[in-house]
């Protein structure tokens, strides 16, 4: 019964003030995929995520989540989101790890109902998945950046989502922990069957781990399996990144292979 297309964006465009930041993007995420979304700074990756989550509305095009138009979609517990801001939250906030994780259940519990023992168990289970259970009652501000990152993933996991969206999760996490972090993602994708969408600009690493890659700069330049992406040669890549750095306002007339 469960729809295969978790996210289905068609011809989505979005303008900030008058500047077009996302242009005619088609993007499909299917169940079980681990999709890496790459592109230079300012290429509209984070905006695209916001469009998917309904935080902003597209000027053109349609967004469907689990086969439903985003307007009618209300099963937000199906989508876990780890924001870029998770790295820069108010670290003086007086909350314990488990309290933070439990906030991931707010949409599932609904209004006028309370947290109970069952929710605590669920939160502990999510912490176990990210190997942070022993820190449940620690103040979130006392943890290292990498540990906080895991807590935010646990918060996204606690509602048993089918899709986990991660926006630049490895920024500010040191190299040693990045390896462990990818190992965790692999576990979630393989063992738990959670589809993943990860925004990053670390192209080298993501192609090794993700099953599929989308490369965008305002519009989608590549969408396909990771192996194919390796054939999407360096020249194309340079062109993509080079233009964004040197000629920000240059229109992308050059059509790069799109799948």
């Amino acid at each position: 019964m469960k729809p295969n297309k978790i996210i289905d964006m068609e011809q989505v465009s979005f303008k900030y003030d008058k500047e077009l930041v996302v242009e005619k993007v088609d993007l499909v995420i299917e169940r079980g995929q681990f999709l890496g979304l790459v592109g230079p700074n300012g290429s509209g990756k984070s905006t695209l995520i916001k469009l998917m989550l309904g935080l902003i509305k597209p000027d053109r095009g349609t967004v469907k989540l689990f086969d439903q138009p985003i307007k009618q979609f209300n099963e937000w517990q199906e989508i876990g989101f780890v924001s870029q801001k998770a790295n820069s939250f108010n670290s003086g906030f007086p909350a314990s790890v488990i309290e933070v994780v439990k906030t991931g259940l707010v949409s599932r519990i609904g209004a006028f109902k309370f947290f109970n023992r069952k929710h605590r168990e669920k939160a502990l289970e999510a912490l176990r998945t990210v190997e942070m259970e022993e820190y449940a009652d620690t103040n979130i501000g006392e943890l290292s950046g990498g540990q906080q990152q895991r807590v935010f993933i646990a918060r996204a996991l606690v509602s048993d989502p089918s899709l986990l969206i991660l926006d630049e999760p490895t920024v500010g996490v040191d190299a040693k922990h990045v390896t462990a972090f990818y190992e965790l993602l692999r576990k979630l994708n393989h063992d738990k069957g959670i589809s993943l969408l990860m925004v990053t600009h670390d192209i080298g690493t993501i192609t090794e781990h993700a099953t599929h890659v989308v490369c965008m700069n305002k519009t989608v330049h590549f969408h396909g399996a990771s192996e194919e992406y390796k054939e999407f040669d360096d020249q194309d890549l340079n062109r993509l990144y080079g233009h964004s750095v040197q000629q920000l306002n240059h229109n992308h007339e050059h059509g790069v292979s799109q799948s």
Partner: peptide, 12 residues
Amino acid sequence: SFDEEHASIAGV
């Protein structure tokens, strides 16, 4: 209080 963005995704 903790995370306004997360609250709005959670439908609060």
